[in-house]
């Protein structure tokens, strides 16, 4: 997290920040429901379901990085896996989706599990 002094030297555009966060948030909540559907079809239970969610959330972040962040970020001279061109901190990008989509994941997981196994 940059200090106030660094923010004064290199200011940040709020609209871009909001736009990027909203793009990521939309993707994460959509894909979390999707992962719930496939976890329900597979009939996963307890820890293996959450492990499935964890793995696919990380995969989402990596794919999103490769498609949207990496081409211009690497061209601008940032090191690989550095998202500071588009996002505040690395934690928000790589792990923020875990909390955003958890409710949607459990909802569709239990629903599809009940539909398929009942």
């Amino acid at each position: 997290m940059p200090s106030e002094r660094e923010l004064e030297i290199s200011p940040i555009v709020q609209e871009s920040l909001i736009h990027n966060s909203r793009t990521l948030y939309n993707l994460q909540s959509l894909t979390a429901s999707l992962f719930g559907i496939s976890a329900g079809i597979l009939g996963l239970e307890s820890y293996s379901g959450f492990l499935f969610y964890l793995i696919f959330s990380l995969l989402t972040a990596v794919l999103f990085y490769l498609v949207r962040v990496a081409p211009s970020s690497l061209a601008a001279g940032k090191s690989p896996l550095d998202t500071s061109r588009y996002f505040r901190g690395p934690f928000e990008f790589w792990a923020g989706g875990l909390m955003n989509g958890l409710a949607g994941f459990i909802l569709t997981w239990t629903l599809l599990y009940g539909l398929v196994r009942a």
């Binding site: 871009s16 990027n20 939309n26 959509l30 894909t31 794919l63 498609v67 061109r85």
Partner: peptide, 16 residues
């Protein structure tokens, strides 16, 4: 997942 990621909107740089 691949289709959804390809369908996201392009990002904008946050540094002014």
């Amino acid at each position: 997942l691949l289709g959804l990621v390809l369908g996201t909107r392009p990002l904008r740089p946050i540094e002014w």
